[in-house]
Design a protein around this nucleic acid. Structure first.
Lengths: 194, 194
DNA sequence: GCGTCGATGTATCGAGCCGATACATCCCGA
DNA sequence: TCGGGATGTATCGGCTCGATACATCGACGC
């Protein structure tokens, strides 16, 4: 168990490499463009993660192949191995708290294309109850202390509450869409695999 | 420099204790109610922080005082020292990137009541440019890869973009309000100190 | 030709922070 | 009376970030 390595980053890397082989620098750029609004991975976590994945045989270095030896600029291109693809499918199938917490939800969502419809639905719903829990907690706390709060604190609470409420509405729409798509006779959005 | 201890948590603790003395458990509850929507501090960072603050003389243990010795339940109540108040004023005056990043902005905002009007304005504006930077980056990246993206990724981007745009509009309103208040002749919102 | 500046690229280190966990006490209801 | 849930303090392993170091490449002016 010495690796651990934070399932989120692992999923993000595996998922990205599933599309096309990449080297570290480019991988980071893609990831941060993909998730730009939610999080930003740093080299300090990316490189250790790549090393761990390499050691576990989930990714492999791609030979420069006679064609690409132009400059000779050192560049290590990684690609997914068969085991890596299995592991990716595994991670994509997991619909637990680790899929709908703040830091991980975005990453899971970003790869929904490769996720089964049923799992998508469970993650969406899990995310929604997570947010509703938080909403309840804050609303309760707020009700007990409303008088004592100054206008800035109040405004912060109001803004936070509103943002989360909006995300819940967003999730509601997504869930409805998913339900409609899965019940619809003709079309199947799942597109079995790649 | 052995302490460091993450200025954000330090500010949060000092700011909370400025209102009233508290013990760890209660402190955490207040903090997480105050910032519920944005972050949640854990004991794993809170207690080390308290220890560090104690060692630096910024907070002190409060004697149970003859009145409160009812149960005898071990409980360590901390209060701000004079040095602690100075340090708090110091932290509240800092308007640097450390004040408007994702993790810290909420905390700074929560204590705006104790912050000078000028500093408030600079933090608000700093936060806004930070978000606008991010907006630019993502929009640029999006424009270059739009065709290649599946509908889920696109939806994620759209939602993220929209959320950040909303926060920018919120900041715009706050900034306008601040400006109006500071230019207004009669009222002064700053309320010099406690 | 020559310097240099910014983007590309790999990599590590210190330090902060979280989640899980352990342990103890108090109080309330079945 | 007994167990569970809130209160309360505390630590540990391990992940992650920000800063930093180092090297090469291409383009630009001069």
């Amino acid at each position: 168990m010495a690796s651990g390595q934070g399932r989120v980053l692992e999923l993000a890397v595996l998922g990205s490499l599933h599309e096309t082989p990449l080297h570290g620098y480019e991988l980071r750029k893609r990831l941060n463009a993909l998730l730009g609004m939610f999080r930003a991975f740093s080299y300090g976590s990316l490189y250790p993660c790549l090393r761990s994945l390499l050691a576990r045989g989930l990714i492999a270095e791609e030979q420069p192949a006679s064609t690409t030896i132009v400059g000779g600029r050192s560049k290590i291109v990684y690609k997914l191995t068969a085991e890596g693809k299995e592991r990716l499918q595994d991670l994509l199938t997991q619909a637990g708290p680790s899929a709908w917490e703040d830091e991980s939800f975005g990453v899971h969502f970003a790869f929904f294309r490769h996720t089964e419809a049923e799992v998508r639905l469970r993650i969406l719903e899990g995310r929604r109850s997570r947010l509703e829990e938080r909403l309840d907690a804050v609303r309760t706390a707020l009700a007990r202390t409303r008088e004592r709060l100054d206008s800035y604190t109040l405004e912060l609470q109001r803004h936070g509450l509103e943002s989360v409420e909006r995300e819940v509405r967003w999730l509601n729409e997504l869930i409805a869409t998913e339900r409609r798509a899965s019940e619809e006779p003709g079309r199947d959005t799942t597109s079995t695999d790649e």
